[in-house]
Design a protein around this nucleic acid. Structure first.
Lengths: 134, 134
DNA sequence: TACACCTTAAACACTTCTCTTTAACATTGC
DNA sequence: GCAATGTTAAAGAGAAGTGTTTAAGGTGTA
């Protein structure tokens, strides 16, 4: 079984690139074309994305769906909604309003503009009162 | 491109199993053998491991290993330990104790129960004092 | 012992990923 | 313009992962 998602080739490229080398320089070192370095690097980042998505799924696995924050909602109203729905389930949310709003926003900043939600956000909660946003 | 590392089949099995069903019951529902459910479930957990290893690699790419927080440690003691070890390396941690505890906890809430660590957590630090937990 | 539950190994068809080359296109800075 | 950097698409060979069956081996418990 492969260790991690990244191949040796992909790690090699990422390490060299991290030191500041250009794709061409890396290509010269590992004896291939710069186009290939680009492809390998891209595949590596796609794998990293997939790894993140996988762990997100894990979080939602021991959580249950709490509510959906509809597009256009004000973040402050969203927080109120979350507290209400959590209370219905008898779960105490681990965060206060300010922390909660920051957490929602940080989960994927591009989904918000100013205080407003731009696209539906699914909210999950576990028994400890942790929240996840999908 | 597949979304995440897990196949639909693997997620399906994990979800059913999470509800408490036996492998045989899941097998009946998804119309296959219990041996196959076992195989799929195992593959799913291997994929989850690989996802974790992948992100660990990412952290280590521009960070170095700082310490390991042992299972059973109190989060407050963990924070103290981190500050001490960072000082040994001559690196100033970017966070105060409260922020630090929140960051550790948020890195993967399921690894904690109340103030205690449920499984070992690897801690990485970079020259800017950013912390990562694997 | 018998039963329910879980795990493992081998084998197979099938699909997907990986690395590679080649050739073209986009962006930036001189 | 042109040189350097990075990106993309198409195509192919080889490698790796997936779901499946069958058959055997564990573990725990009534």
């Amino acid at each position: 079984m492969k260790q991690g998602l990244l191949t040796d080739r992909q790690k090699e490229v990422l390490r060299y690139r991290k030191t500041g080398l250009t794709q061409q320089q890396v290509a010269d070192i590992i004896q291939t074309s710069k186009a290939n370095v680009c492809t390998i690097e891209k595949a590596a980042y796609e794998n990293i994305e997939r790894a993140k998505e996988t762990l997100e799924f894990l979080y939602t696995l021991d959580s249950e769906h709490l509510c959906t924050i509809k597009s256009g909602t004000d973040l402050i109203d969203a927080a109120t909604l979350i507290f209400q729905d959590a209370e219905k389930l008898g779960i105490k949310v681990k965060y206060n309003t300010l922390e909660l709003i920051n957490r929602i926003h940080d989960s994927n900043p591009s989904r918000f503009r100013a205080r407003y939600v731009r696209e539906d956000v699914e909210v999950y909660i576990n028994r400890e009162g942790d929240l996840f946003f999908g």
